[in-house]
Simulated scan of single mutants.
Amino acid sequence: MRNIFKHIPMVTLGQILGTVVGFPLLIFLINIFYYSNKYNDDAEQYCDNYIKKSYDIEVMMPEEKSKYYLENQDENIKTSETFRTRMDNNFFANPQGQYYPFYSVEYKKYFSIMCFLYPTEMHWPCDMKVILTVNRDDMNNPAYGTKENPVPVLKDIGVDESIRDNDQDYDKAYMDSFYRENVIRYLKYKMPKSEFKRRFKNK
């Protein structure tokens, strides 16, 4: 073994060791010390608190080409997001969120319908009556409802027709499960850590 290293230049040996040992170790340390603390991993403990303060409102969604949809006004509006949970090459395995931000004439607030699971089973509503489930604290907070920080909507149901395939809007067990899981992922990945701590842990 010594004879092998004897014929390898020190620079090359350093590169080999860096690739074989250093880089994997760096990734391991980043995953442990950065990604393990990046999100609100105990969100499930507090999802019921968030849900208990929620209620339904009914709105008429704007037409498809309406200026009230933020993505029609500003191409920089974020309508999707991927949350990195670890440093690896499988980027598509990470959780994702899809957003549908719009302005409500009835409530004079900006809302964003957010989906962190099963987005392919939904048809984003346009020009139809919908029931939106919102959180009371979000609605009463003047920091929410702006263009920059719309009120999050984590459950929406069509009034006259289902937004989801197979009339799943009207399957209560399915929608209760969908809402709970969507809330957990919103609290875990999307809500800033400082706000999560203030609203749920400092009480």
Rank of each mutant, 00 (worst) to 15 (best):
Q96N: 08
P62H: 02
Y69K: 07
N49Y: 00
P62K: 09
E106A: 15
V59Y: 11
Y69Q: 04
N40C: 10
Y68F: 10
V105S: 14
Y103M: 01
V21T: 06
N72A: 08
Y39M: 01
Y35A: 01
D74M: 06
Q45E: 10
K65W: 03
G18S: 07
L117I: 08
E71P: 00
K67W: 13
Y55P: 00
N76T: 14
N90V: 13
Y118W: 04
T82C: 10
D41E: 11
T82G: 07
I30V: 14
N37C: 04
M114G: 02
S66V: 12
P24C: 07
G14Y: 09
V20D: 11
F83Y: 15
A43W: 09
M114Y: 04
N90S: 08
T82V: 11
I51L: 11
P24Y: 08
Y34M: 08
F92A: 12
I77D: 04
Y34F: 13
Q15G: 13
S66M: 13
K65N: 15
C47E: 08
L70N: 10
E64P: 01
R86W: 06
E75Y: 15
S104T: 07
V105C: 03
N31T: 03
I57C: 05
S66P: 11
Y39F: 07
K78R: 14
A43F: 05
E64D: 05
D41A: 03
N72E: 05
E44S: 15
K78M: 12
T120F: 01
V105A: 08
C115I: 12
S104W: 10
C47Y: 00
T82K: 12
T120V: 09
T82A: 10
E58F: 12
Y35P: 03
F116I: 08
Y34C: 06
I32K: 13
M87H: 10
Y35M: 06
V21Q: 01
K108C: 04
D42A: 09
N37W: 04
F111K: 13
F33C: 14
E71T: 03
V20G: 09
F102R: 02
S54G: 11
Y55A: 09
E75N: 12
V105T: 13
M114T: 12
Q73F: 11
K52A: 06
K108Q: 15
S112N: 03
D42P: 03
G18T: 08
M61L: 14
K109F: 07
I51W: 05
F111S: 10
E81V: 07
L29M: 12
S104R: 14
G97T: 04
E58W: 12
E44W: 10
F91C: 02
T79Q: 13
I30S: 13
Y55T: 00
Y110R: 01
Y39N: 00
S104K: 14
F102L: 13
V20E: 05
I113M: 09
L17F: 07
N90F: 08
Y118H: 02
E58H: 04
I113R: 00
N72L: 08
